[in-house]
């Protein structure tokens, strides 16, 4: 051990050895840092790869199909002998199922969030939240089974003319599936509202319900809206539930009691068949994927911006 604090005269060779050791150490450090940086960069690489692959394959598609036909056509039959490429039926199916999901998830998620944030005793919250988290962990193909073989028959008892494949039942199931997500993001927003606001309200003689609805909720509104928008983004991208329970026939309708294909269900349907690489039908799933990415990206960006603006306010 050498002494600390006292400068000892050192021989030239020892000095050089120590310097070499230091240099090696610094080299090793920067090598490690470079490797870690490359690993972190993989996230950027993935995004770039997604964009490049989708654009590249879609370009081949749009050489054959005009953008105008793609965006305004109301018939989607790429696998027929006389193919037509109007994406609107797929978008309609996607919007309809996501809409049904939202009708279920918004009220239930919002009330759950208010309850968890403002009403629930500590014990209840700690017991129930893990269960809600488990709800998110259930694989979506299992939800598909549940929608097709439990929810649809149940709905058919209420609405006898409901077909076996419809958008209502997968929509409801997706709605229940995204409740935990919607409620946890909104709960975060409500808990971020400063206690002093609530105390002010209580001091005026307001009840808990009045405080929650008239003080906490308006203060947390942008965070709550962000939760809904992020929820929509999830519902739009959901695949297996609709692929199993909504039928896979493209159908230009906004009526949830009919069967229809969503963008995601179409991709699954095409991928199940063995399509030759480079064919127009093969490229069509990339064009459909591009639409899907643009839709979810728009929702995600809006959602995160709202969420961030809310966080900064307090």
């Amino acid at each position: 051990m050498e002494q600390v604090g006292v400068r000892m005269p050192v021989a030239q060779s020892v000095h050089a050895a120590r310097l070499a050791h230091k240099r090696a150490r610094r080299l090793k450090e920067s090598a490690i840092e470079a490797v870690l940086f490359l690993c972190a960069l993989s996230a950027v690489a993935t995004t770039v790869a997604i964009v490049v692959i989708l654009l590249y394959e879609s370009l081949g598609f749009f050489e054959v199909v005009s953008l105008r036909e793609f965006l305004t056509g109301t018939v989607w039959t790429p696998l027929f002998t006389n193919p037509q490429y109007g994406v609107l039926p797929l978008v309609a199916g996607t919007v309809t199922t996501a809409g049904v999901a939202l009708v279920v998830a918004v009220p239930l998620g919002l009330v759950t969030a208010i309850y968890l944030s403002e009403f629930a005793p500590h014990g209840v919250r700690e017991t129930v939240k893990p269960f809600l988290e488990l709800l998110e962990g259930v694989p979506t193909v299992v939800y598909g089974y549940f929608a097709l073989l439990f929810v649809t028959p149940l709905l058919q008892k209420l609405m006898p003319e409901l077909p076996g494949f419809n958008m209502l039942s997968p929509g409801i199931v997706i709605g229940i599936m995204i409740i935990p997500y919607v409620s946890s993001v909104s709960e975060d927003a409500m808990r971020a509202v400063p206690m002093s606001l609530r105390e002010g309200s209580y001091a005026m003689g307001a009840t808990r319900f009045q405080t929650a609805i008239k003080v906490v909720l308006p203060a947390a509104l942008s965070g709550v809206v962000a939760a809904f928008i992020l929820g929509i983004s999830r519902a739009v991208g959901e695949t297996m539930v609709v692929a199993v329970a909504a039928g896979q026939q493209p159908n230009f309708t906004f009526n949830p009691t009919e069967s229809a294909a969503t963008i995601t269900a179409y991709i699954v349907q095409v991928a199940l068949g063995d399509l030759p690489h480079g064919s127009i039908a093969y490229q069509s799933i990339f064009a459909a994927g591009l639409v899907l990415v643009l839709m979810t990206l728009a929702f995600n960006v809006i959602g995160h911006l709202l969420r961030r603006s809310f966080r900064e306010r307090y």
Partner: peptide
């Protein structure tokens, strides 16, 4: 910042899009 934004965004990309990426990139 770029890396962080990408990580956040990737978490929101629908899983089927990863399938398309893999089909184009890994498979072919």
């Amino acid at each position: 910042d770029l890396i962080e934004i990408n990580v956040t965004n990737l978490a929101g990309v629908p899983s089927i899009v990863y399938g398309l990426l893999a089909l184009g990139l890994f498979v072919y």
